[in-house]
């Protein structure tokens, strides 16, 4: 079960909005550099579209490195654009556990899964106009439900399908080890 506060965005959130290219220079290993990915996660989203429906809400408050929000609700084609793995990594570093969207751009989805950063969950319908930033959510992957505790509504989510094994293993390396492909 993944629980937490919703952060809501519109459609076509591309990787430049998730982590602007100027910030791709920090090391993802060094603990001091790495935390800047958290600070600048989603800093490329235009203000009015950040934290819907009101807007004007940054994912991470100024001068902080982590967010109070843990679940992103996005519109269609989430993560389109570049192949930078820094995008799902930045969201994880900011404290995001899962994303719920009706559809993902392919490379972002794959990076989220293979790197074991965030769980990309597909919703049946677009929830970005129903759920509000700050709503308390519960994602139940056994019952395939997303429960909005604030609005007292329940929505269907899709099964993870063929990538479930990689997600459950924690990423492609862990999966390949389980399969005996790498030592």
């Amino acid at each position: 079960m993944i629980k937490g506060k919703a952060f809501v965005l519109g459609k076509n959130i591309d990787t430049d909005q998730i982590i602007p290219a100027a910030h791709l220079v920090y090391s993802l290993e060094d603990p001091e550099e790495r935390k800047f990915y958290g600070r600048y996660a989603l800093s490329g989203v235009p203000e009015k579209q950040s934290g819907l429906p009101k807007g004007g809400i940054p994912l991470v408050e100024k001068d902080k490195f982590e967010s109070e929000f843990t679940i992103i609700i996005g519109g269609a084609n989430f993560g389109c654009g570049s192949s930078r793995e820094h995008a799902p990594a930045a969201l994880e570093i900011a404290g995001i556990k899962a994303i719920v969207s009706p559809g993902y751009a392919r490379i972002f989805y794959r990076n989220s899964v293979d790197g074991g950063f965030v769980v990309p969950i597909e919703s049946v319908e677009d929830l970005s106009e129903t759920i509000e930033t700050g709503d308390e959510l519960e994602i139940d992957q056994e019952k395939l439900e997303l429960r909005n505790l604030t609005q007292k509504k329940t929505y269907k989510i899709k099964d993870l399908g063929s990538v479930a094994d990689i997600i459950n293993a924690g990423g492609i390396f862990e999966y390949a080890r389980q399969q005996g492909m790498v030592a």
């Binding site: 993802l28 570049s82 192949s83 930078r84 793995e85 490379i107 794959r110 990076n111 293979d114 790197g115 990423g171 492609i172 390396f173 390949a176 790498v182």
Partner: peptide
């Protein structure tokens, strides 16, 4: 030819 992330490249 297609684009991939850092983890896949390392793999």
């Amino acid at each position: 030819a297609t684009g991939i992330g850092n983890t896949d490249a390392a793999f």
